[in-house]
């Protein structure tokens, strides 16, 4: 049984206009790629990837999207929220030369992961992508780490101009990587899958989650019945290749399918 904990928000950092990092003083013991369920008991409980986790504290980095996150953005340091987890699968920790490809608000989880990779002795390159400069996150955070960073925006307003996939394709053709990880919009990962050829990889997925304990069926992925909250959100290549819904459709809170 995963115990629910109700704790105070220790610190809030505004990353962009609509992305904030919430830090909590609590020993979560999470692994990179895992997520927590967070609620304020005012209506809604949502999954959030963990963007940092130490012995004493952990953080989630949240994009304001709907009613729930809008309310969360109004909270102050010292306000209570309730969390449960950490849930789900985590990234395989390679000791070799790896490439991380991240897009938008899905990038911060790579901050936690990059630190774990460095501890394991991996050689880390990160492509940190966003549509435009004001949506680009964690550039300053990654500078602190001993990794190679390639910042990229679709419109060229920050870093190189292009998509994260363009850059990935370019550097894969020049350099050899042992493992690739991606966290970003599903269509970015789908495009990436088509250019990475024979490199082994893991992708971090997002689906509408409700129970987070593998029973409600809302985040089930076709056709293999993979429960993303339990077997995911990090999926290895051999599972990703089986997913017929990857890059095609996802289900909403009612279970109705929507195309990407």
């Amino acid at each position: 049984m995963e115990k629910r904990i109700t704790i105070k928000i220790d610190r809030i950092v505004e990353e962009t206009n609509d992305i904030k990092t919430f830090t909590f003083k609590h020993t979560l013991g999470a692994k990179p790629g895992q997520f927590i369920m967070l609620t304020d008991f005012e209506g809604g409980e949502k999954p959030f990837s963990i963007s940092n986790c130490t012995k004493e504290e952990f953080s989630v980095t949240v994009k304001r999207i709907g009613e729930f996150t809008t309310r969360l953005f109004q909270k102050c340091e010292g306000d209570y929220v309730s969390i449960r987890g950490a849930y789900g699968s985590s990234f395989f920790v390679s000791k070799n030369k790896v490439l991380l490809v991240g897009g938008g608000y899905a990038v911060p989880t790579f901050y936690f992961f990059a630190k774990v990779l460095l501890e394991a002795g991996a050689d880390v390159t990160l492509i940190n992508g966003a549509r435009t400069k004001i949506e680009h996150v964690f550039a300053d955070r990654f500078i602190e780490l001993d990794i190679k960073v390639l910042n990229v925006t679709d419109d060229g307003s920050f870093g190189e101009k292009g998509t994260a996939v363009d850059i990935a394709q370019k550097i894969i053709s020049k350099d050899k990587f042992d493992f690739l990880y991606a966290s970003g919009p599903e269509l970015m990962m789908k495009a990436l899958q088509n250019v990475i050829k024979d490199i082994d990889y893991e992708f971090l997925f997002e689906r509408y989650m409700k129970c987070a304990i593998g029973i409600c069926g809302n985040c089930t992925m076709d056709p293999i019945g993979l429960r993303l909250c339990v077997e995911g959100p990090v999926l290895p290549k051999k599972k990703v290749e089986l997913l017929t819904e990857f890059g095609k459709y996802h289900r909403d809170a009612s279970g109705k399918r929507h195309e990407f």
Binding site: M1, E2, R4, M37, T39, F41, G43, G44, E45, K46, K210, C211, A212, I213, I215, C216, N218, R251, D252, A253, S254, G255, K256, R257
Partner: peptide, 28 residues
């Protein structure tokens, strides 16, 4: 008609059992 179900939390665990209020979410 499709039903989105109740807002979360929709499950709550305790020793020996589980409470749920999914709220009949279904695609119709």
């Amino acid at each position: 008609e499709p039903r989105m179900g109740h807002k979360g939390p929709v499950v709550a665990e305790f020793e020996g059992g589980l409470l749920n209020c999914m709220g009949l979410c279904n695609p119709g």
